[in-house]
């Protein structure tokens, strides 16, 4: 697979409104050098964190006790990747925010995850559809990162790639079983794919300046997706609707609720350590 790999160091570019001074001639009190790379890493971190939170919601509710364990394992992997990425994002930002500051003290408008991961779990078919597409995206993404010039990202990519490969395998296993199982499971699995499909567009939106341009992942993504869907006797939906905005902090209504639950206790005790 090929992927654009950024070789240069982080380069500060003013982005997000509110981080630069609006008053001419005045120096901003605390300028935050928000770099392109910070935003990119934050996006990956938030994908993993929000995915972990959603998967953790399944705990004690799985369709089989064995599956409870499997979903918890995958949630733990995503959470582990999120922590590494958030820590690194905090360092890139240089404002002294650690993983918990970033996870617990940002509002939904500051989250950079794709919309796919914040969608509600739905039934087991929707959860497997979300996981399958996420893993089909994360595997080539982390693989590309593993070979990129940024040592930290390369190390995280090398570790997370193996985990995502397993997530992809596990989700594919269920997509095939549900797609080619009973009439009911086929109907539910197809409905899940139809529901989630429009959100895939956002994952692969080109971003040539990113350490890994998502557009370069499309070939790998498409080949896995079409192979598994066809094995699962599922059809690829036709749609022209392409919701997006997560990478810029414009989310669905769901994220704010998810964060309310994630952050409630931490925010109730400012400054406490746990």
């Amino acid at each position: 697979m090929t992927a654009h790999v950024e070789q240069t160091g982080p380069e500060p570019v003013p982005t997000a409104p509110g981080t630069t001074s609006a008053v001419p001639g005045m120096t901003p009190a605390a300028p935050k050098p928000v770099t392109k790379r910070f935003e990119f890493v934050l996006g990956l971190a938030d994908d993993a964190l929000v995915a972990a939170q959603r998967l953790a919601e399944w705990c004690t509710r799985g369709p089989e006790m064995e599956e409870d364990i499997a979903l918890a394992n995958i949630a733990l992997d995503q959470l582990g990747a999120a922590r590494l990425l958030l820590t690194y994002a905090g360092e890139l930002e240089g404002a002294g925010r650690d993983e918990d500051a970033l996870a617990y003290r940002r509002d939904d408008r500051e989250f950079r995850n794709c919309l796919l991961v914040e969608l509600p779990n739905g039934d087991f078919a929707v959860t497997m559809a979300k996981l399958f597409f996420l893993a089909a995206y994360q595997v080539p993404l982390y693989t590309a990162l593993a070979g990129c010039g940024d040592e930290r990202l390369a190390a995280i990519g090398a570790k997370a790639r193996k985990e995502s490969a397993y997530h992809l395998e596990h989700a594919s296993l269920w997509v095939r079983r549900l797609g080619d199982g009973t009439d009911e499971s086929h109907r539910r699995m197809q409905a899940a794919v139809d529901e989630v499909w429009p959100y895939l567009h956002e994952l692969l939106t080109p971003d040539p300046a990113a350490p890994v341009d998502p557009a370069t992942l499309r070939a790998d993504f498409d080949s896995v997706v079409s192979r598994v869907l066809s094995e699962a006797t599922l059809t690829v939906p036709e749609t022209s609707w392409t919701p997006a905005g997560g990478r810029n902090g414009l989310h669905t209504e769901h994220l704010s609720y998810l964060l309310a639950e994630l952050q409630v206790l931490h925010r109730a005790h400012p400054g406490a350590s746990w």
């Binding site: 064995e66 364990i69 499997a70 394992n73 395998e169 596990h170 296993l173 079983r177």
Partner: peptide
């Protein structure tokens, strides 16, 4: 239900 699932479950358990 089948061997592939059994392997996944065994790994996790």
């Amino acid at each position: 239900a089948d061997a592939e699932l059994a392997l996944h479950n065994a790994r996790d358990l």
